[in-house]
Write a protein that binds this DNA or RNA. Sequence first.
DNA 1: ATTGTATGTCTCAAATTTGAGAAATATTTA
DNA 2: TAAATATTTCTCAAATTTGAGACATACAAT
Lengths: 185, 185
Amino acid sequence: MIPATKERIIESAIKVFNDDLSAPLQKIADNADVTRRTLHRYFKDRNELVTVCERAMEVSCKKAMIAAIQSSDHALTQLESMLYAGIDCGAKYSFFYKLHQRKEHNHNNQNKNCADYDYIYRHFNHIIVELQQNGKVNTDMSTEWIQILHSGIVQSTVNAQETTSKSDKEIKELAWTSYMKAIAP
Amino acid sequence: MIPATKERIIESAIKVFNDDLSAPLQKIADNADVTRRTLHRYFKDRNELVTVCERAMEVSCKKAMIAAIQSSDHALTQLESMLYAGIDCGAKYSFFYKLHQRKEHNHNNQNKNCADYDYIYRHFNHIIVELQQNGKVNTDMSTEWIQILHSGIVQSTVNAQETTSKSDKEIKELAWTSYMKAIAP
DNA sequence: ATTGTATGTCTCAAATTTGAGAAATATTTA
DNA sequence: TAAATATTTCTCAAATTTGAGACATACAAT
């Protein structure tokens, strides 16, 4: 059982690191409403914190994605759930996505995380191809592009949640409508 | 006339700061292929560099946006040009957009930059409303949401340019097609 | 009330980052 | 080529960030 404080530090760290990987740890401590000393009690050093964040984010994000895939056997519903899962994971999703995209990252399917990433994106591809065969998705668009679009919509929806006055539900519906229409034939 | 080196430093700084505002200056120097010493000759300190970046990015991004607006008097063409301008500005666009969105930013239309930002977004809104009246854009979507979507598509297209094998032209076309279909009635 | 655990405060040394001087080298311009 | 300018290299002190010890407080569980 992970203590609530530790959890809070990880959450803040994910949020802060997400657009400022070199941010001073003080910034994360402030954000989590703890002293820097407390942060250092939970994490040996910056490196460990980053690693833990990556793992935490991978785990929760992967879990949500896999659940989304398994929530239905209709490809369209699966895709919709994946979009919502991404939005719900918030900053974690961008982190997750970035992580496996950046050039320093040496992809390696022996690694459990990479294997899961592969699992998710194989399924994603599978869903898209199926929808294309059913004539529900534009065949002029590569799955590669649709993946980019998918993550773009997730990201901007997450950002939007912070600035807009709309309810989460409304925003998600807008996101899904826009996405679906964008990739429709 | 700004020296090429200074220009290069600013470019790198915008790129690096864009997802790591606290990055060590060494990282920017490396990216710009100069020594940290050279960087320090052009910029008194980190703060000055950040300020100069903001200004540079505002100027070039604004110029491109305004040019896009004025490039045509067909609303749809204007919107398309604005999307491409955003993509061409690359990292600058996200920076520009973020800058005026973050809560520390105190919007103030006495400020020339804010005034220009307002000018651009007034026009953007105008274009959307006009397209909605012509039945070319979905009236269920607020301009607020369309703006979010717009910047989301720009951002992910810029990211995509770095990872994908597709040509810039192809990607831009995909972006525009997806965007237009997403907001169509 | 007492014990144990978690967090905060204050402190400090080590590590890193920052900004700049001085002289050597490279590059441009006349 | 010579002079002028820009950049690099090496160096160093100041500032900031990092990680941790020692002890004080707060708070929950028994």
